[in-house]
Computed example of a mutant assay.
Amino acid sequence: MPVTDADAVPRRTVVIVPGLGGSGPNHWQSLWGAENPGWRWVRQRDWDHPVADEWLASLEEAVALAPSPVVLVAHSLACAMVVRWAETSARAGRIAAALLVSPADVDSPDHTPDEARVFAPVGMGRLPFPTLVVASTDDPFVAPERARAFAAAWGADLVEIRDAGHINADSGFGVWPLGQDLLRELIEDG
């Protein structure tokens, strides 16, 4: 899924933004990153105990260092982080588009662990860049109606997948071809 010719500055810089726990080696984010060594990653000091200011600073740095407009690829807790970041960062204008997959409902103790509360409340303002939310009808970390409310509030398009769990390796998602197709469309449109 190359975004540009190998010798040119990329038209878009893809930045992968993992959620709580990071993305293990079998997670679709890791598999996509391995196929696309020019893509960037947001790195965190501690994937299991997020500190909001640290996580936001890591995202800010990744966007600042990108050589071209950015397409964010966030999963789970990282979706709430991206929304919080977009509310306050002057660099949000560098975002060409965002793919937000399985947004965790950090406001709900029934759906997310206490560690996720660092990004509560979930921002419900319109995002200043084109956004696609992908959610599952049986995600344990967000109720379907809440994922729909997020997408509507953020001004995002929504792709709802039936019975796909948390859309991660534990749910049986490896390389996730549908996700690659959705990202490709977002890059081409962005």
Rank of each mutant, 00 (worst) to 15 (best):
G179S: 02
S136W: 10
N168Y: 03
D105Q: 11
A6V: 15
R184W: 05
D7I: 09
V14Y: 00
L186K: 05
H27F: 01
H49E: 10
P10R: 07
L59F: 05
Q180A: 03
R45T: 15
L59C: 06
P18D: 09
M81L: 15
A90F: 02
V122K: 09
H111L: 04
T137E: 08
Q29S: 08
T137C: 07
T4L: 11
Q29E: 02
S58F: 00
V51C: 14
E35S: 00
R162K: 15
A149H: 09
D46H: 05
V15T: 13
I95S: 13
D107R: 15
W154C: 07
G155F: 08
L183D: 00
H75M: 05
V70Y: 14
V82P: 05
L56W: 11
T137K: 11
A164G: 14
R117W: 12
R148F: 06
S76V: 09
E188R: 15
R11H: 15
V175Y: 01
P18I: 03
M1Q: 04
V83K: 08
V73E: 04
P37F: 13
V71E: 02
A104E: 06
W154Y: 01
A90N: 10
L100D: 08
I187G: 04
D163N: 15
V70A: 10
W55H: 06
I167F: 06
T131N: 08
D48R: 14
A97T: 03
L186M: 02
V82Y: 08
D46R: 06
A156E: 10
V133M: 05
P177E: 03
V51G: 06
D53I: 12
M1P: 02
V71N: 04
R84A: 12
V9C: 09
V15Y: 02
P121Q: 07
H75Y: 04
G93R: 11
S108V: 13
W55G: 11
G21V: 06
A74Y: 05
D110F: 12
R162N: 13
R126F: 07
V122Y: 03
R43Y: 07
E115P: 03
S136M: 11
A92G: 01
A62W: 06
E54G: 12
V63N: 06
Q44A: 09
V3N: 07
T137A: 07
D138R: 14
A98M: 07
A86N: 02
G155R: 03
L77I: 12
G33V: 11
A64N: 01
L20E: 10
L99S: 04
W41E: 10
V70H: 12
C79M: 06
N36H: 10
P37Q: 10
V83L: 07
G33T: 10
A116G: 14
W55M: 10
